[in-house]
């Protein structure tokens, strides 16, 4: 069963400057009594008191201002950061898509990146080899797949990353805001594939500033503010509170009809 449980979790980042990071200070600092070496290092409290329980079928939107802790929370939920205090338990095959440039190696080709990312997501070489055609077709990158990744535009990287995660059937899909960088035509295609995937796979957590995307893919939401969960509830409630107005007000009837089909539970 797919689930993510987080209890009383907090995440702080130690900020080492050149001095506190060196051994010199840790060793010499011992003179004159017990100074906890950690206490001298400034700490950023990125997340505090996170209590969360997500299970199969949840499609959670993550909203909040820049620096509110959305990306950090996503990393906590994908198991990259383990909470400093409290605990977390993640059950299921996770596929995260974060900041799209960094996780991939710019010097190697698109194909190689597909392979490496697939292996990281728990696939075998053989399984990935059989998926490459599918990913190439979906991402429409064609011969560009043979080029090193540094030759790609941001949108092309997003296409590649989305192609990979949607092709491998993850149980938990974690998306950060970067995926807004693709053009409208591709977004339509990706949306279908994502909604399809979300229906099949268990769990989606999606951070974005784009209401449209959130409304298409998610049904519940978490509002992050200053590293804490300020509000948790249905997407409509949370977006209304966050934006100060009901985002569904100005939608065209066609759009509402479509959302009614694809993102059913808004009225919950």
């Amino acid at each position: 069963m797919v689930s993510i449980d987080v209890w009383n979790a907090s995440v702080d980042f130690p900020i080492f400057d050149a001095k506190s990071r060196s051994l010199k200070k840790a060793v010499l600092g011992k003179v004159g009594g017990t100074i906890g070496t950690d206490s001298k290092i400034p700490v950023i409290e990125a997340l505090k008191d996170i209590n969360l329980s997500l299970k199969d079928g949840d499609r959670v939107a993550l909203v909040g201002h820049n620096g509110a802790g959305k990306s950090t929370l996503l990393r906590l939920l994908s198991g990259i950061y383990e909470p400093v205090t409290g605990g977390s338990r993640i059950v299921g095959k996770i596929a995260p898509v974060f900041d799209l440039g960094v996780g991939m190696d710019p010097e190697i080709s698109g194909i190689e990146n597909i392979m490496i990312r697939g292996l990281f997501l728990g696939m075998s070489r053989k399984q990935m080899e059989s998926k490459i055609d599918d990913i190439a077709e979906f991402s429409e990158l064609g011969d560009f797949l043979q080029m090193p990744l540094r030759a790609y535009s941001t949108g092309m990287r997003v296409r590649l990353a989305l192609g990979i995660v949607t092709s491998i059937d993850p149980e938990i899909l974690i998306l950060d805001e970067g995926i807004g960088a693709v053009d409208a035509a591709f977004m339509d295609k990706a949306r279908d594939r994502l909604t399809d995937l979300v229906k099949r796979s268990g769990l989606l957590v999606f951070a974005s500033h784009s209401d449209d995307l959130l409304m298409e893919l998610c049904d519940s939401a978490i509002w992050m503010d200053g590293g804490r969960m300020k509000m948790q509830g249905s997407l409509r409630e949370v977006l209304t509170a966050y934006k100060g107005r009901d985002p569904y007000e100005n939608l065209s009837p066609e759009m509402l009809a479509r959302l009614g089909v694809t993102a059913g539970g808004d009225s919950r």
């Binding site: 994908s78 990259i80 995260p96 974060f98 996780g103 990312r117 990281f120």
Partner: peptide, 9 residues
């Protein structure tokens, strides 16, 4: 660093 911060492994 890049891989550690972006992919759980």
């Amino acid at each position: 660093e890049g891989l550690i911060k972006h992919l759980p492994a």
